[in-house]
Design a protein around this nucleic acid. Structure first.
Length: 113
DNA sequence: CTGATGACTATAG
DNA sequence: CCTATAGCCATCA
């Protein structure tokens, strides 16, 4: 996907610090796509080619992952998150604790977002 | 332009 | 906890 929106989405996902996570909706808003959570989902579904993209830090707003519990991708994502210090209990992640709060400087650094 | 799609979300029961 | 539903929006055929 070589679109204008894609670049912003990539920029935002890349900005998520290790040890923290962000929801699809959160990324969409930061990328300038209000209520475009599904756009982010579709993007990740197709563009899995981008290397060094911390896609594992993008999870659902309710703390669950975007993959079916127990699936190969699910386990891979959970493993990677655990490595970064993000632990889940009962296949869920405590958003109150791990949700990334974009700093003001990040937002100001991307006026167009 | 029209309709379909998607690793989503909020709400209701 | 679960399923069902409507809403969502950029992208693509």
């Amino acid at each position: 996907m070589t679109t204008h929106k894609a670049d912003k989405i990539i920029a935002c996902i890349t900005a998520i610090p290790s040890g923290m996570v962000a929801s699809y909706g959160q990324i969409a808003e930061l990328a300038g796509i209000a209520r475009g959570h599904r756009v982010v989902a579709k993007f990740l579904k197709q563009d899995n080619s981008v290397s060094d993209l911390p896609w594992h830090r993008v999870i659902r707003a309710d703390g669950k992952l975007g993959f079916p519990i127990g699936s190969r991708m699910f386990l891979q994502q959970m493993t990677q998150l655990k490595v970064e210090g993000v632990v889940a209990k009962n296949n869920r992640i405590d958003m109150k604790r791990y949700a990334w709060q974009p700093t003001l400087d990040f937002i100001l650094f991307h006026p167009d977002l």
